[in-house]
Design a protein around this nucleic acid. Sequence first.
DNA 1: CGATCAGTTGAGAATGGTCAAATTCGGTGG
DNA 2: CCACCGAATTTGACCATTCTCAACTGATCG
Lengths: 244, 244
Amino acid sequence: MKLVESSPLTRKLSAFVALSEADLETLARFHHRRRTFPAGHTMMHEGQSNASAFILAEGWACSYKMLPDGGRQVINFQIPGDFLGLRSILFRSSDLSLEALTDIEASEVFAPDILGAFARAPRLATAVLWASSRDEAMMVEHLVNLGRRSAVERMAHLLLELGARLNLVGVGDRTGFSCPLTQYHLADALGLSAIHVNRVLRQLREDGMVTFQKGRVVFNDLARLQSLAGFDTAYMDHEGPLLR
Amino acid sequence: MKLVESSPLTRKLSAFVALSEADLETLARFHHRRRTFPAGHTMMHEGQSNASAFILAEGWACSYKMLPDGGRQVINFQIPGDFLGLRSILFRSSDLSLEALTDIEASEVFAPDILGAFARAPRLATAVLWASSRDEAMMVEHLVNLGRRSAVERMAHLLLELGARLNLVGVGDRTGFSCPLTQYHLADALGLSAIHVNRVLRQLREDGMVTFQKGRVVFNDLARLQSLAGFDTAYMDHEGPLLR
DNA sequence: CGATCAGTTGAGAATGGTCAAATTCGGTGG
DNA sequence: CCACCGAATTTGACCATTCTCAACTGATCG
């Protein structure tokens, strides 16, 4: 009976904001300009201007900033249903770099697409705003992670967050998920050295909490892991602003 | 000849987006419900619902999250011209706590105020969106700070950022600014212990770069400090999206 | 079959944390 | 004006977490 195909973005938004068939159709029109990028491709450079935004349909990406000394800080990992570089169409230039971690399928969106949708489908517009506020809430949680948690806690928190997010778009389940990240990626996201990431993963594995091996994360003791990380989904579970 | 008084917010926005007299008047109407809070007052609690947003007119505030173990992570310090809790009117509840660091004067704004302005003064709306994107860019830079910089670098970066932001709203100058933060506040923002903050401040003072004593920050060697911190104002200097 | 890249492990060093104790400083009451 | 109080700052000694360097393994790929 559905008029439109269900994309990861649709699934994510629908979990929090009730969308009409008309909304869903407008949303489907976002996926007009489909593009693919190979793993490792840099889709956007810090400082680059005239950048466009994307909706990730398939695969993983990450946003990051480089430091003069060669270090890098991963700001977030993006999974299907996430926006890439939404902020770069408001600013004249992007403040982050963006890299495809796997082969990627994404829909390119321009500012007029978004603004047009804001005019035609106000509830959808609010949903998009909601999604971007949720991204911001995640960034806040990442700040807490880097500032006030130990290495093991940080790792636990990151894996739990990724698991919860993937669940929401229908990938992976309660027991785990498959994960294309290397230990270097984890290190750059958590502000650790890759070597220490390795030790932390071993500790979590030996303690029987999570196993991350061969591209697969398995939660062995979810409850204990959540309590270790102080993981509270509240920051991701906010209800949308317009449910009526 | 000016029709409207110049507020810190006006000064900030005007530096990046050309606003018409009509825009300025709409902006001035934001400052309708003026309220004051004493230093130390908690203006918003994490999880609190029905929170309203504020525009800070006078004084300092900070947003933070508490951890189960009693630790706290300061997300940002707010100075005159900044929005407080803008996200909390989109979500049903706030994801942060908000505390007045000094006696404060602020204007309370409700969602309809903002949305009304969006309808009547699109350029002003864009300016507000721009301001909130800028806040997000600052948060990204704070992530880099916590994840990839040493204690001294972090401190240098924070003080430089505060200096630059205060400059923009006409408080303080090239040589320094007066600052109500305690070393505990700095510690909670930088992910350090208060004791180590003290050591770091001493080192910066003895190296002749910055002096922070008796509530006043003095830049003794701005150039050297900026190069130490890897401080690049690009993330705060983005031009607004609508200059035409 | 090298070459490369991700992962693994160990040893020593460094950065920053914890605990405990002064010291300074701005009030406040006598 | 002075004694005193509490909060913020300062210092020292010691400890823990995490980093760096260096080496080795194992898989994958041309």
